[in-house]
Amino acid sequence: MPLWKRLLRLVALLILTPVFFLLGCQSRLIYFPNSYRAEYESQLRSAKGERVRFTTSQGAQTAFYIPPRTTAGGLPQTVWLCFAGNGSLALDWLAWTDDWDPNFAYLLVDYPSYGECAGKPSPGTIRESGKAAAEALAAHLHTPMTELQPHLAVLGHSLGSAAALMTAEELDVHRGVLLSPFTTMTDMGRIVLGWPLCHLNLHRFDNHKTLRHAAARPGARFVIFHGAEDEVIPMRMGQELAAAHPQTVTFHPVSGGHHNDLLNLISPQIGRAMEEVTREVKK
């Protein structure tokens, strides 16, 4: 074989190997599912939480309903649909819910393959799970979805911000708090892999698009917090999302905040933002 042909094959191999690797192993590079340990069960009992079971195209799913700590009757003032970051689980939110308004209730949603949920995560299956979990909660509370919907708000961290916004889009929810959101998964790929490999992204989360839909609804109100020292998702992405909707989205930079310590650093501020979003929407 001529030398030029051998060189051409070598160049093709060098180019195609990372392409095939990224296409074949992309999910493993994006998602990091975890299972629950025994101590989570005692935490759930302490919070008087209840499992909300439902089924999607991915099979059996489980979310967790945490009722208000107050004893007021009827539907809760606000039910926060909570979506955790990539390496976290839904019940990890329990570490902070006690810091927040006791009138709030929470539906803590895991992604397919996370926690007690079957299946595989993707933008489509995560979107499906968020909507189905809220509908299952309506049935769990013995109330029509049309009556529960005005009580809903979304809360998400990192990947959970994308899940929160997709769920908001599905359910016509127009209030929420987002922590460390990215703009698009392709933009994240550009940071990690560079151009042009970033365009091999098959998991096309697009927070620009979903936030645009949610922010355009009457009475919409969102708050974004982002650590100034975030080493995973640069703060400029949160700033960019907020700047596109100055009338409905407020941005709060967190001095000294990183990606994984944000909730620990500003839990009280997050709680106040949740209260403000709720009050402003009700005006």
Rank of each mutant, 00 (worst) to 15 (best):
M1N: 11
P2Y: 02
L3Y: 04
L8H: 03
V11Y: 01
L13F: 14
L14D: 01
P18A: 03
F20S: 11
F21I: 12
L23C: 01
G24C: 06
Q26A: 06
Q26G: 08
R28P: 00
L29M: 14
I30V: 15
P33R: 06
P33A: 04
L44D: 08
A47V: 05
K48T: 09
K48G: 09
R51T: 10
S57Y: 03
P67G: 13
T78K: 14
T78G: 03
V79F: 12
L89F: 06
L89A: 06
L94D: 11
S113P: 00
Y114I: 09
P121K: 11
I126R: 05
R127A: 15
A134T: 13
E135A: 13
E135H: 12
A136V: 12
H140M: 04
H142L: 09
P144N: 08
T146K: 14
A164L: 09
A164Y: 11
M166D: 14
M166H: 13
V173S: 11
L179A: 05
L179Y: 09
D187I: 02
I191G: 01
I191H: 08
V192Y: 10
L193S: 06
C198V: 00
H203F: 14
L211A: 10
L211F: 07
R212Y: 00
A214N: 09
A215G: 13
F225K: 05
H226M: 05
A228H: 02
E229Y: 04
E231C: 01
P234D: 07
M237G: 01
E240S: 15
H245Y: 11
Q247G: 15
H252Q: 12
S255I: 09
G256S: 12
N264C: 00
T278H: 12
